[in-house]
Computed example of a mutant assay.
Amino acid sequence: MSERSNNDSLKKSCDTMNNITPWQQMISSCTGAVLTSFFVTPLDVVKIRLQAQKSPMKRGQCFLYCNGLMDHVCWCRNGNGNNTKPVHWYKRGLPEPFTGTLDAFIKISRREGPTSLWSGLPPTLVMAVPATVVYFTCYEQCRNKLGYRDGLQEGQWWKPMAAGVVARTWAVTLISPLEMVRTKMQSEQLSYTAVWQSVRKMVRQEGIIRLWMGLGPTLLRDVPFSALYWFGYESFRSMLQRIHGKIRIGFWDNFFAGAASGAIAAIITLPFDVIKTHRQIELGNVMGSSGEKKTSSTFRLIQSLYRQQGVASLFTGIVPRVIKVAPACAIMISSYEYFKSVFREHNLKAQKALMIPSS
């Protein structure tokens, strides 16, 4: 009886904890995206600098920038490093080569200044903020529509998975044309007017579906990851709620739940990530060459990887992926939940103030 009454009280308190508006959810997710990008971006800046040191990138070559929150295809715009052309953040050279990740952090900070570690932040914020706002707000709305109550009721395990699938599909589909335009603009260094004319010409010749080129491989990884992530996060969160005996858990509880669920989802969906990375580079080369190159299908890419390198090729890079994804998920969800709790307290105080009769 005591356990049932405890669950009933948690359910009632859960109803009062959801009283935040969609705008407040959007602000919370926006703040979380900015904080996550700020903390995780230096990891990818150092990684790309280390990669460029081992195999220098040529002008026009595309590379993948991904900080655990968003993935971007970027172009090497500078030339061979002479003084007549600008040297961008991913090709800056130091007198002494980097011997490892920690050494790269120290040398870049000392020689170029600490701000150089955030050189890759702008391309992330351009797409990460709107994509994250759409994704998290849609997830919350879908979850609430399904009547999910933090896993406290039996048979609700599928609801966060369904909400995660819908939210990720909607967010990726909505942002995909913008990412395609951004990639096209960066690869050919076009002005906004030229980009608009290029997009109109492309739509007339190949149809509006061309704007969603590359959507398939993106959904192939992001949708399963989203389903597994939200299932894991809500499960860990419900477990911690039962341990503490209250619906409102702390910042570090959310941090742990986000990191654990993000790591598990990253490991399980690693083959999809490998496939998506190869496809992004292929599609990037296609857009960078004005559509002259032909790209193979995702299925043919899987066959090619399997024939050339075996099953092991689909599980490469597990350590770097977990190192980036786990903290990114942890920072994002814990900051998101923190700012949601701030808005909840604000709304509750406003409601109490309205209920006090004027003297």
Rank of each mutant, 00 (worst) to 15 (best):
V45Y: 06
C74F: 06
L94K: 10
K324G: 14
I264F: 12
F225P: 01
C30G: 09
Q308D: 05
V166R: 03
S235M: 05
G207T: 02
V322L: 04
S119F: 10
T99S: 15
D150L: 15
I331N: 04
Q189A: 11
T31K: 08
C76D: 00
K85N: 11
A128L: 01
G216I: 10
S290T: 07
P224I: 11
K276S: 10
V87I: 10
T269I: 06
L102A: 13
H72W: 12
K294M: 13
V134F: 10
R168T: 11
L283G: 00
W157T: 10
M355L: 13
H244Y: 04
I48A: 00
R49P: 04
L121P: 04
Y229M: 02
G81E: 03
D71G: 15
K11H: 05
F236E: 03
L50A: 01
V34M: 00
F98G: 12
D222E: 12
I264L: 08
F225C: 10
P327D: 03
H244A: 01
F255E: 07
K276N: 15
A171F: 04
G317M: 00
R110Y: 13
I302C: 09
M180K: 08
V34I: 11
I268Q: 03
Y338H: 11
S297T: 08
P97R: 14
P130D: 06
R110H: 12
R111Y: 12
V87S: 06
G68I: 00
G100D: 07
Q280E: 12
V165W: 02
A266M: 00
R210F: 03
Q241F: 04
N19H: 13
N7C: 10
A260N: 10
V34R: 01
K54V: 14
L354V: 04
M180P: 08
P217C: 01
D71N: 11
E96N: 12
Q205I: 11
S289H: 04
S290W: 05
F136G: 03
K201D: 11
T173H: 02
G147Q: 09
